[in-house]
Amino acid sequence: MDAVTRIRAARWADKDHVAALIADALHPSPLATWLIPDPGPRRRILTDVLGIWIEHAMFYGDIHLTDDDAAATVGFHRYRSIPPPANYQMRLADAAARTPAASTFSIGCSQRSDPPGPTTSWRFSRYGPTAQVPATAPPCSPTTAAASTT
């Protein structure tokens, strides 16, 4: 009998793990390379910046993890306006200090517009290009460190 992957709501203690999971998924992507060209600090910067948004989602959305911690989904509820993360500019400067990423992330935040619909979500998993993705894997592309947005 196949094992069933269970999904659970993330707890406050999971926020750092979720940020690291998403940073691992995004690290080799063209998006991450564009945001942070230097591969040395890329994972740390991604983890720190994503940590800000994961914490924000704990208050203004939902975060779910598979029971094996291999995949996560992060969603923001769009029933009303969502304020920016607390002390975002200061925290962003700390997370992406002395890199071009600070201004890139800042522009991305300030120029965003609210999408239509009640929820915006991101789904991420650690499945790489050669991984055998189980049939119960979360609905995202299993290509190089899968990441998708809806």
Rank of each mutant, 00 (worst) to 15 (best):
residue 11 R to M: 07
residue 80 R to K: 12
residue 50 L to D: 03
residue 17 H to P: 07
residue 108 G to D: 12
residue 79 Y to Q: 01
residue 145 A to R: 07
residue 140 C to H: 14
residue 45 I to Q: 07
residue 37 P to V: 08
residue 135 A to C: 11
residue 52 I to D: 10
residue 104 T to R: 15
residue 112 R to M: 11
residue 135 A to G: 13
residue 115 P to F: 04
residue 38 D to A: 04
residue 75 G to L: 13
residue 28 P to G: 03
residue 127 Y to P: 08
residue 29 S to V: 00
residue 58 M to V: 00
residue 146 A to K: 08
residue 134 P to F: 00
residue 31 L to M: 15
residue 112 R to C: 02
residue 120 T to W: 11
residue 20 A to G: 06
residue 36 I to F: 04
residue 29 S to W: 07
residue 45 I to W: 01
residue 148 S to E: 14
residue 103 S to Y: 02
residue 28 P to H: 03
residue 80 R to P: 02
residue 120 T to L: 13
residue 144 T to E: 14
residue 3 A to G: 15
residue 91 R to Y: 08
residue 68 D to Y: 06
residue 146 A to D: 12
residue 95 A to E: 03
residue 73 T to E: 12
residue 67 D to Y: 08
residue 36 I to L: 06
residue 90 M to V: 09
residue 47 T to G: 01
residue 134 P to V: 02
residue 27 H to F: 11
residue 47 T to M: 09
residue 7 I to R: 13
residue 121 S to P: 02
residue 106 S to W: 11
residue 27 H to D: 15
residue 99 T to L: 11
residue 8 R to S: 10
residue 129 P to G: 07
residue 105 F to T: 09
residue 134 P to C: 02
residue 98 R to M: 14
residue 2 D to H: 14
residue 146 A to Y: 01
residue 5 T to I: 11
residue 89 Q to H: 03
residue 87 N to I: 07
residue 64 H to G: 05
residue 21 L to N: 09
residue 63 I to L: 09
residue 15 K to R: 14
residue 104 T to W: 06
residue 131 A to G: 10
residue 142 P to H: 06
residue 54 I to C: 06
residue 132 Q to S: 11
residue 137 A to R: 12
residue 130 T to L: 11
residue 41 P to D: 08
residue 84 P to R: 04
residue 143 T to K: 00
residue 51 G to P: 03
residue 50 L to P: 00
residue 80 R to G: 09
residue 88 Y to Q: 09
residue 102 A to W: 02
residue 143 T to Y: 08
residue 13 A to Q: 12
residue 12 W to I: 12
residue 57 A to F: 01
residue 26 L to W: 03
residue 107 I to P: 00
residue 81 S to C: 08
residue 112 R to V: 09
residue 20 A to K: 07
residue 87 N to D: 15
residue 48 D to P: 05
residue 16 D to H: 08
residue 22 I to A: 14
residue 16 D to L: 05
residue 2 D to A: 13
residue 147 A to G: 02
residue 136 T to Q: 11
residue 90 M to Q: 14
residue 21 L to V: 04
residue 53 W to R: 06
residue 95 A to G: 03
